[in-house]
Design a protein around this nucleic acid. Structure first.
Lengths: 162, 162
DNA sequence: ATCTGTGCTGGTCAACCTGTGCAATCCGTA
DNA sequence: TACGGATTGCACAGGTTGACCAGCACAGAT
């Protein structure tokens, strides 16, 4: 359940866009801005959440703002017989690992790491490769954020107009 | 303003954690769960937001749930004289580009791309490399999400206990 | 043409929450 | 000991929520 895909329409898209710009807004205010009935907004929101299109409204913590100014992408090569899951478990224990994916191509896992500074990044990477299931790590440091993570344009482009 | 770093304490961390698990919760309910006064919760939240530690409470849209099941990481090599900004502008026009960073090492820009399917990914990449400022693209496809994007463990580990 | 399910509308209701202001209290530091 | 900053408890008015309902419009099925 929830793993299906949802086809958005214009109202859904406007709703998400509006919530994106003014997140703490209420359902009533949303209905006013969108010029629809309050119940409609409630129903749409419920549906989007129920179907998994919207995961949640969690506070978006900015790592850089709480002292983790260095972002890096690390490609890991793993010892196959250990399996991805075991390695994933190891990575999950390290708070600085913000996400991890298995990937195609050279390297087996790509993960996003943050650290307080370059020297601190070294510590984190040492911690990662300290696990015997990991053979090697290739580190790429992010210098500047050209496009911060966003989904708004995607939402806008993804609905088929009524 | 907002680009400084904030030192969290235990209450901040608990507050963020609680908001993470139950995002639609109100300030009053938060204060009850944390066993502090409502005004304190409000003050803390305001401060966290004002200092940039929390960027917002936007709806977290799941690309996979609205039809974009393929995630990939693309490394771009650019023609230096065009400059990063021009390329960033081009990338920003493509909705499927969810984020982009300048990076160290081989390649100049790393970006995260989603697409409806592998064939669709080809279309998006063609669109990206169609710009003359971009020399080459190396594509890595994400097969599975071992660790979905998270900041909770980071927040937990980042405060110095009172 | 009629029926039917679905979604939207506009309205009501009681209960609750928010934003705001204020005086009192606590606590670390000068 | 005195000060400033943070926290607490309390109060108020106004707005919001969740739940409900009847009416209506529309598309598809009969």
């Amino acid at each position: 359940m929830g793993e299906q895909t949802v086809q958005l329409d214009g109202l859904d898209a406007r709703l998400i866009a509006l919530l994106g710009t003014e997140p703490r807004i209420g359902v009533l205010e949303l209905s006013r801005r969108l010029a629809v009935a309050r119940g409609t907004v409630q129903a749409r929101l419920d549906k989007l959440i129920a179907r998994g299109a919207i995961k949640g409204f969690g506070p978006e913590v900015v790592p850089a703002a709480i002292g983790f100014g260095v972002t890096s992408f690390v490609t890991l090569e793993i010892r196959q017989r250990y399996g991805h899951d075991a390695v994933a478990g190891h990575l999950a224990d390290i708070p600085e690992v913000l996400e991890a994916h298995t990937i195609t191509g050279s390297g087996d896992i790509l993960c996003r790491i943050v650290a307080r500074a370059n020297a601190d990044l070294q510590r984190v990477i040492d911690q990662i490769v300290g696990y015997e299931g990991i053979v090697r790590a290739h580190t790429i440091i992010a210098l500047a954020e050209l496009i911060p993570y966003r989904t708004a344009p995607l939402v806008q482009s993804s609905y088929n107009a009524k």
